[in-house]
Amino acid sequence: MEQKVVTLAHGAGGKQTAALIREVFKEHFDNPEFTPDDAAVLNIDGAKIAMSTDGFIVSPFEFNGGNIGKLSICGTVNDLACMGAKPEYMTCAFVIEEGFPLDKLEMIANSMEKTAAEVGVKLVAGDTKVAGKGQVDKVFITTAGIGRLTEGFKTSGAFARPGDQIIVTGDVGRHGCTILLAREDLGIDAEIKSDCAPLWGAVESMIETTRDIHVIRDATRGGVGTVLYEIAAESGVGVRLDASSIPVDPAVQGVCGMLGLDPLYLANEGTMVVIAPKEAAGALLETLKKGKYTKNAAIIGEITEEMTGKVVLTTAIGTQTMLPEPGGELLPRIC
């Protein structure tokens, strides 16, 4: 049966999101600068800049560890950071539902200000729209940003090479888990804080450590599992993960156990996947472990020549299994 409408699965960051982008947006927008990476690299009269944009519709708009405002800065900052670009200027557009409390809007603006200041990025233009009651869910924010590219430094999802090590910059799945618990009436209570954080500082210190980095990718929607499948496809390589070295907060593991979910598919908002040659990975890990938001960084696997396009897990008992390919909407499994 052919689907004729947009479904939640189209927005889940997996295969169907990729298909929608390919079949609708790329079909109409394609040009030499159109990118599958987090930000586009542009050349304007010789000056090389990175540009990115991201929309935020998180519900609830306030959650443990952040709110939609902080998220909207971190999202775009991290997209730019993934290209090794120092975020310089940002714009933001608000769509606000009629009746939204002003003090909440102020709270959102305040945390945007703080997060931007921490990174050193300036908010230079904005737009405000108010929609009638029920036309949007409280508040939506879209941000865009441009960043200064680091001279002589280039990463891409297509640069992973066999033998490279795979690093995650923190424990996985906290943001997705936080939102799941806040949004669904699952009755589960856990001390889990979203990992929502701006990571330009972390990327800057990585670049200072070594320029020998092949891929940096923000593991947001769809989680680390989805990002690794994307990288495997774009680079034409295989991925081998060591299941027992993947850092997961115990409470996240507990929630996932109750609901039959895999933390590798839960969203992150302050955790990246970094891929670098073996010689560089150790030093990068050391640098990350000293960082403010990346203390739980770990090497979780390596890039392989075989099993192209696949993510294989070495289990705790030493067997091999495939990480399931990213699917649609996350559905808790009970029976």
Partner: peptide
């Protein structure tokens, strides 16, 4: 329903289809 049943196809529609 448990999450498991949401995408199971019926004769014409699944619960996911009608939720949409």
């Amino acid at each position: 329903t448990f999450g498991d049943l949401i995408r199971v196809p019926g004769t014409e529609k699944s619960l996911a289809d009608i939720r949409r």
